[in-house]
Design a protein around this nucleic acid. Structure first.
Length: 472
RNA sequence: GGCCCCGUCGUCCAGCGGCCUAGGACGCCGGCCUUUCAAGCCGGAAACGCGGGUUCGAAUCCCGUCGGGGCUACCA
């Protein structure tokens, strides 16, 4: 049997990390098995589904490199991969089930049903005791699936192992609404059958729905797929991920300076591990060993600090030109303007030093803004902390020495300034920090000699002079 | 309430009866390096929820208990 898996998000909002992790695990499994990865759009909720959300989902998958073999925008041999195109099919299935005595019409109102649930609760009975009706009780309304009461539903979950649900605890669920729109249970199950899905890999929140889907699949005359229910992802406080934890949409990370390969690596670790001691690994390495049996059963907390660390690791591992290219859009938005060619050259010269100092691409502009502004913006705290006794002398002596440097590059600058330190008899901290603040405006910056080299001799001297004036 | 899932350092993961005086990583603390900040290197604190069994032996198996979570819609 060939492996065919799908991710079926609903376009009712921006796709979030929970969905993405499910997509990733489906993708890893498919690639490891040499199977087919399908992207389907579950838009049965026509009122809330929006085209822009569908676009967001697909953009997100593309950004992460989760390429799909069949599905929306790619096609495949199974017709449409958008459920709103297939309502006829679901309706036909629902009516066929009715005619075969496996489902029935239910014309009761929501209020009546709610009253029955309340009554069941009060009498400590399962709701199904009152919800369930004889097959021929009505001839119109919604269509409910009639859950067979003969046997328990048992299946072997790929991550949770033996599962068993007693029939009286599974309620007769609606498969087709009064308005003819299918419910998630029907559409999803019919599609999984029609598209020959072999493994359903999804969040644990759907575990209680699994017996319903299995029963429905059997009613359709098909063999149920294998199921694998992934642990849920929680926020930093151990509570379910929600708006409270900030923006959990993938888009927020996509624009927040994160690298897609770092996101993939990090999310792979949410409920899975390559082995006992590797944290950083490529997607190819993950594909090579991915195994559902090794997926953890307990919920995973989304740890932003760890994501940031992983992102930093990936940034540092980038080849310099690659880093410059990736940082480019963040630089123009962060600096608020486009850089000209000579400015880009200057950035390129200092980029490797920036690269090892940031965890997010969004931090890049802050590291080099001093390089691109004509009037330096001194950080007041840095100034007061660094400028003290001897600072003026150091600055004056530095100017004198640096004026004499004929070949303006980091090595020569260092030689000149070391000589200055010797002559003044002061240590590097005391002698160099004032220069740093004078040149970059801050006590924290990329290495000084390289920074001066990139800034240029004239501008460096100019800034040193300005600081001297300011001290008087 | 009912049904179901889960329970190893603060966090993620390893462990699937003896290799465990419980391993790795993030974070935290300390040190080294050092022109600042990072990075890097070295070291440290830090966990098997609890109670019973089973067994020569349990983090690993069983039962209970407590705790966390999911589902319980004509949402998905």
């Amino acid at each position: 049997m060939s492996v065919r898996v799908r991710i079926a998000p609903s376009p009712t909002g921006l796709i979030h990390v929970g969905n993405i992790r499910a997509a990733l695990f489906n993708w890893l499994f498919a690639r490891h098995q040499g199977g087919t990865f399908i992207v389907r759009i579950d838009d049965t909720d026509v009122a809330r589904s929006l085209p822009e959300y569908e676009r967001d989902i697909l953009d997100g998958f593309r950004w992460l490199g989760l390429d799909w073999d069949e599905g929306v925008e790619v096609g495949g041999p199974h017709g449409s991969y958008r459920q709103s195109d297939r309502f006829d099919r679901y309706q036909a299935v629902a009516h066929d089930l009715v005619s075969r005595g496996l489902a029935y019409f239910d014309d009761r109102t929501q209020e009546q049903l709610e009253a029955l649930r309340v009554r069941a609760q009060a009498e400590k009975r399962h709701p199904n005791f009152y919800i369930r009706r004889p097959l021929e009780a009505a001839t119109g309304g919604a269509i409910r699936f009639s859950v067979p009461q003969e046997a328990a539903v048992e299946f072997d979950d790929q991550v949770r192992e033996a599962m068993r649900f007693e029939p009286e605890t599974i309620d007769d669920f609606v498969i087709l609404r009064t308005d003819g729109i299918p419910t998630y249970h029907l559409a999803s199950t019919v599609d999984d059958v029609d598209y020959d899905i072999s493994h359903v890999i999804r969040g644990e929140d759907l575990l209680p729905s699994a017996p319903k889907h299995i029963l429905l699949t059997r009613a359709l005359g098909a063999t149920p797929p294998a199921y694998a229910h992934l642990p849920l992802i929680l926020g930093f406080d151990g509570k379910p991920l929600s708006k409270r934890h900030g923006d959990t949409s993938l888009a927020a990370y996509r624009h927040g300076g994160y690298l897609p390969e770092a996101m993939i690596n990090f999310m792979s670790l949410l409920g899975w591990s390559l082995d006992s001691d590797r944290t950083i690994f490529s997607r190819e390495e993950a594909v090579a060993v991915f195994d559902l049996a090794r997926v953890s059963k307990n919920p995973a907390t989304f740890d932003l600090d760890k994501l940031a660390w992983i992102n930093g690791e990936y940034i540092r591992a980038l080849a310099a030109p690659e880093f410059i290219e990736r940082a480019r859009p963040y630089l123009t938005t962060g600096l608020g303007r486009d850089l000209d060619q000579s400015e880009w050259a200057r950035f390129a010269a200092i980029a490797p030093l920036v690269q090892e100092r940031i965890k997010l691409l969004t931090e890049a502009p802050g590291q080099v803004s001093w390089l691109f502004s004509d009037v330096l913006d001194y950080d007041q705290a840095s100034w007061t902390k660094v400028m003290g006794d001897g600072s003026a002398e150091a600055l004056v002596e530095a100017v004198r020495r640096l004026e004499g440097v004929t070949e303006w590059e980091a090595g020569a600058i260092e030689v000149a300034l070391r000589a200055m330190l010797d002559e003044l008899g002061i240590n590097a901290r005391k002698g160099l920090q004032p220069l740093r603040v004078a040149v970059t405006g801050s006590a924290v910056s990329p290495p000084l000699f390289e920074s001066m080299a990139v800034l240029g001799q004239d501008r460096t001297l100019e800034r040193l002079q300005k600081a001297i004036d300011r001290l008087r």
